[in-house]
């Protein structure tokens, strides 16, 4: 009897600790998860933008999920410039054809992939965008060419609802 006692005691304590730890973990999760995007934020999926008034060579900026989205109607030169770049010259190789399904329209998040600033339009060494925060240069397809940013500006999910309306998200 006395030989068995310590074993049962040990089991009891281990079980209490283990079950207690599970509970602490279960209680911690809601406290962490409450900081994640809530149901109403997640529900705000898409924005529709009327682009009929945008002239070639102009960019409009719209807000989607709290971030600026650049919608640029590119000129013919810009398109050919973007499409003539060799893949090996790119830091983050992506074809312009994949980034702009309709070559005239470039839709991308106006957020520098370095640390999140908004790049300036028609600036920089590659006729595209230039981020004033830490000097990243983007080309006419929004691809990173020079500077600290690691990636091209992100193209969100979007579609043309009709000839004049783009639905982002």
């Amino acid at each position: 009897m006395s030989d068995k006692k310590p074993k049962r005691r040990e089991f009891l304590f281990t079980a209490s600790y283990a079950v207690g730890a599970v509970g602490v973990g279960a209680v911690t999760w809601p406290l962490i998860d409450q900081m994640n995007p809530d149901a109403s934020v997640k529900a705000l999926a898409s924005t529709e933008v009327d682009v009929s008034s945008v002239k070639p060579g102009n960019t409009i900026t719209v807000l989607w999920r709290g971030k600026p989205v650049f919608i640029r109607r590119r000129t013919q030169e810009e398109i050919s410039e973007a499409r003539s770049v060799k893949m090996e010259d790119l830091i983050h190789p992506e074809k312009d054809e994949d980034r702009a399904k309709n070559p005239e329209w470039l839709v991308m998040l106006g957020v520098c992939t370095h640390l999140g600033c908004v790049p300036l339009n028609d600036k920089g060494d590659y006729d595209g965008w230039f981020c004033p925060c830490h000097g990243s240069h983007y080309d006419t397809s929004g691809r990173i060419r020079k500077g600290p940013a690691p990636l091209n500006m992100e193209v969100p999910k979007y579609e043309f609802v009709n000839a004049n309306t783009i639905k982002i998200g």
């Binding site: 809601p30 406290l31 998860d33 409450q34 994640n36 809530d38 149901a39 109403s40 934020v41």
Partner: peptide
């Protein structure tokens, strides 16, 4: 009401 409805586990907290 936003806490009670939309925030994750908001009602519980």
């Amino acid at each position: 009401e936003h806490i009670m409805r939309d925030v994750n586990y908001g009602w519980l907290i």
